Simulated assay, not measured.
Amino acid sequence: MKPLDRNISVLEHIVSYCQQIEQTVERFGNSAETFQNDPIYRNAAALCILQIGELVGKLTDEFRAQHPAVPWRQIKAMRNIVAHSYGTVDPETTWEIITDDIPALKKYCETIIASQQ
């Protein structure tokens, strides 16, 4: 698989996890209080964040360098925090990620995918 094809495939998977986060918010409710008080809700979102961070690590270095608008390193770092010390992840920070950062990441990835077709 060519690097560009691999990167696009990774982006498509990232978009899929962003959509799963959106569906999770729809299912449980768009409420920071509900999110804070429901460990199932938090865990569902955290797993998708973890998967997104894992996928970011599969993008080529060239691709990440060509798209500096996305904080790839921070996304990967959040994956490591979720994977290794979820109990210390602040629910408010996670809520901001799923309500602010994830929609922006999804849109950015969709734009890149569309530009390659």
Rank of each mutant, 00 (worst) to 15 (best):
Y86A: 09
S85Y: 06
H84W: 10
R73Y: 09
Q36W: 07
T60I: 05
E62L: 12
P39R: 12
P71I: 09
Q66C: 10
S31Q: 08
P39W: 12
A32R: 13
P39L: 09
R79W: 14
S85F: 00
D101Y: 03
F28M: 11
P39S: 13
W95R: 04
I49A: 04
S31W: 09
M78K: 02
F63D: 07
Y86G: 09
P68V: 10
I97T: 15
A69G: 13
P71W: 08
S31T: 04
D100Y: 02
V56P: 00
I40C: 04
A45F: 05
A46M: 01
K76V: 05
N37W: 09
A83Y: 11
N43H: 07
Q74H: 10
E33C: 01
T94L: 14
H84P: 08
D101L: 06
Y86K: 09
A45E: 07
Y86I: 10
P39K: 12
D100R: 04
H67F: 12
E26K: 15
Q36F: 08
N43V: 01
R42S: 05
T94S: 08
A45L: 07
Y86D: 13
I81L: 11
E96W: 04
A77G: 11
D100E: 14
R42C: 04
E26L: 13
A77C: 01
R27S: 12
V82G: 01
T88S: 14
P71T: 12
N80W: 14
T99G: 00
V82Y: 06
A45I: 10
W95S: 02
A83L: 07
W95G: 02
V70D: 05
Q36P: 00
Q36E: 13
C48F: 11
D90R: 12
V56F: 02
D90H: 08
R73I: 11
F63R: 05
L55K: 10
R73M: 11
N43T: 05
A77P: 00
R27E: 15
Q74P: 00
E26T: 13
R64E: 07
A45M: 09
A77T: 11
T60V: 03
A32M: 10
V89T: 11
D61G: 06
T94P: 00
V70R: 10
T88P: 01
